[in-house]
Each structure stands twice: as C-alpha cells, then as structure tokens.
Amino acid sequence: MSVAALTEVEVDYPRGRALGPFSLAIGPGEIVALVGPSGCGKSTAMRLLAGLEAPTQGEVARTPGRGETAVVFQAPTLAPWLSARANAALPLELAGVGRAEAAARADRALARVGLAGVEAARPAQLSGGMAMRVSLARALVTEPKLLLLDEPFAALDEITRRALADDVLALWSAARPAIVFVTHNVEEAVYMASRVVVMTKGPGRTAGEVAVAGPLPRPGGFRTTETFRAQVEAVSGLLAKGMAQGDVAA
C-alpha cells in the first residue's frame, strides 16, 4: 500500500506538456529523490503528490488526509510579519488547534530542528539556513505522513546543506514519514534517498531508478565509500541517458 501514487499522469499547460506520461508510487517510510534536468516537470509532479494540482490525464492516489501532507519550498516561504513560533504554528492554527497548544507544539518542532531559543525572532532576523529550518519545523509540526521537499536546500551554501541533509535524515528516523524531495544535486540525492528516480528532459518521464544501498541515516564517512561513489555514477549515467531520450522525444 503506497502513501501516494501517480499512475500514467500527464499534465498539459497552455504552453505545452509539462509532465508525463509519468508513474511513481511512494511507499510508507520511503525516501525518494526526484532528479532530472531543469524544466522536466519535477515541481509539477510534487504539486500532484501534494494534491495542489490535478493531472490532465492519469490518476493520483493519496492516502494522507488534511494536514498530513507537508511541503517545504525552495525558499523558506515564511510570513515576515510572524515570529518563528507563529510561522511554525501556522498549519495548526489553520486547522483550528487552540493558540496555546499550537504554540507549544511549534516550540517543540523548532527545538527538533535545533532552533530552541529563537522562537520569538522574525524571519528577517534569521540566517538563510535558520529560516529554512523554521520552514522545516512548520512542515513537521503536523506530524505529516508525506513530506514533500521541493529543492529545499538549493539556495544554501554547501556546509549548511550537508548539515541540513543529516538533520532531515535524523528527523525522518524518529517518525518515518514518506519523503519525496527534488534536487539537482546527484550526490545529495544518493546521500539522502533510499531510492533515486531519474527523469528525462521535459516533458519528464522516468529515465530509470536506482535503489540506494546502505543504512539510513548515513553513517559518518558514507560519502567516501565505494558504494556511494558507484551509486552516484549510476545516477549520473541515467541522467545522461535521460537527456538524450528527451532529445529523441522532442
């Protein structure tokens, strides 16, 4: 039984086809990385999985109910007029949870992403990495069954993104939500995912999949292992093939 599944979906926009035909099933507790060239429809696939958009063709099946799907966008996307606490509490308040309980749960979520002590700060007072952590806390506050990360670390420096990758894996190991994340970075995909799905040039289809071996969260030094290198090679190969396939289709 999958948490969310796209079956032969196609998405057409007025300017042309954005995605598909494309299929993807996400199992419970799975971490899936979507990798593909720019404009291949990764973000469109994410919006379908989130239920924010309907496909032109094909089927979307989702088991999580209201509030059980969370999305983290490329930018932190925080409300500048709200404190970190109020930003993290927003999903709960929209669901009608009382103010005091929402604040307490937001504080716990902030503590889990390492932001205890900055609950009252406004987004403008936080660094890019801290703002992204608030965004992550906001996503985790409802204890989602499906967590969608759309290039969440793209705007961050390498050290911050590595730290955040480990943090996301540590958070995952506590509650084991299904995670789907989009990235341009092959090493990040292999490091964080239990399965990497490579898409062709747009409109995206599946170019191939790599099931990533090794324990999650990753042990120290995983990036230097032979397994890691081999799997990065495999994904890179699929990516090159996907680019070529896109050319043929176009």
Partner: peptide, 14 residues
Amino acid sequence: ADPDLERLFDLYAA
C-alpha cells in the same frame, strides 16, 4: 501575497 504561501494555505485547506 507570496504565491508559495498561497499554496501552503491551499495545502492546509484554509
């Protein structure tokens, strides 16, 4: 309003 924040409000069925 930030379009991504609008999407977030969609997601949580505001």
